[in-house]
Design a protein around this nucleic acid. Structure first.
Lengths: 207, 207
DNA sequence: TCGTTTTTGTACCGTCTTGCACATAAATAG
DNA sequence: CTATTTATGTGCAAGACGGTACAAAAACGA
């Protein structure tokens, strides 16, 4: 007889893997990789250590998986913001606005960006983390530069605009917000810096 | 009789406090605060744990002292670069060049900026670290904005240039280099981004 | 009902961690 | 030379840490 459900043979899981990974990411997000113990991860996910280990491997593998997922989400969100209807300024406002919301999300203190706030510290001596950081940076750069190139072609930017340099500046600008939000800067300050960066780029005149 | 030397009464120290603090900073710089043990700090400084404890207090106090000194040095170096002879472009080239040299310094892998690379992770829940981060960011912003304002007054920048926004962008640009160097980007890439940012700012025309 | 499979939960192991107690060493003061 | 002062170095205590062994539990197949 064919099975109606594909439920596997043994005892069912007491947790949802995606949700558990998100909770573990939240724990790492707050305390960093080295600063978060397996006990805290178990408490955050509601799982006990052996289940964590069976589901995700060791602490580092769990962290790397959370990091990869976050990177993919960041890049997908950036692509979506750049493809949204409206001109360059509207796209950038959406992009920076979503970023600020993410950096200030959560109940307690602002945690900034998960990647920037936790992976940089662990990067020295860890090629896997370095690779994820590299993909995050270059992925963001290229998506921003592509959108700026389109704006240049459509006349929203000067014909001689250096879209690579502008892409780097905007990328650095949003990462600056990630850092400063984690350092405790209030939303109004973050929004002011974002507004300044967007206005600067969208009011350029030809040299 | 008046003492010829001011050497205190007891057994002399076997270490130089400034040098020990610098070595401890280097250890933290590589592994972060949580990722660096007292054993590693003792090995790096050549001191044993009780001497470390007597000299600097506990691990956190040692880290905070290293962080404060680094922040003060960063701000002093920025002031110096902005006051160096030459125009805006020369000052910015000096500023970015010194930053890149510092980010790539050391024998092994690049470690980026000590403050950015280690304090961000520890900032959540730690008001002291947040305060040092805040002083670092605002100190850098204001020094850059001051120099840009002078350039504007001297005609090197358009009269309607938003020096606050440009100061934030340049600050974010150099912090971007700090992040990317720690992520493993080669010197040539860092220099390219720096050149793009400097050229962009120093070739602005009035809107 | 009984065996099989998979997950759960307790309990544990060896190691590393921070921080300190205490005896010893090296200097000065008299 | 002796007392005093300060720093050193061994060594330890109490607990946190990452990771796992093992038995009980909860599902399915027959």
């Amino acid at each position: 007889m064919v099975h109606k459900s594909e439920r596997p043979r043994g005892r069912p899981r007491a947790y949802d893997p995606d949700q558990a990974l998100a909770r573990a990411r939240d724990a790492f997000w707050q305390g960093g990789f080295s600063g978060t113990s397996l006990d805290e991860l178990a408490a955050a996910t509601g799982m006990n250590r052996p289940s964590l280990y069976a589901a995700f491997g060791d602490k580092r593998a769990l962290y790397l998986e959370a990091l990869r997922r976050t990177k993919d989400g960041l890049l997908a969100g950036t692509s979506a913001a750049m493809a949204a209807p409206g001109g360059l300024k509207a796209n950038l406002e959406l992009f920076f606005g979503k970023a600020i919301d993410a950096y200030l999300a959560g109940d307690g203190e602002a945690r900034g960006c998960f990647v920037i706030g936790t992976a940089l510290t662990e990067a020295v001596g860890d090629p896997d983390i370095k690779a994820i950081l590299h993909e995050t940076f270059t992925g963001l750069d290229s998506r921003l530069a592509e959108r700026l190139e389109r704006a240049r072609a459509e006349g929203e930017l000067p014909a001689d605009a250096d879209v690579e340099a502008l892409g780097y500046l905007l990328s650095a600008a949003v990462h600056g917000l990630a850092m400063r939000s984690r350092a405790g800067e209030p939303r109004e300050a973050l929004e002011g810096w974002a507004r300044g960066a967007i206005n600067h780029v969208t009011s350029l005149r030809r040299a």
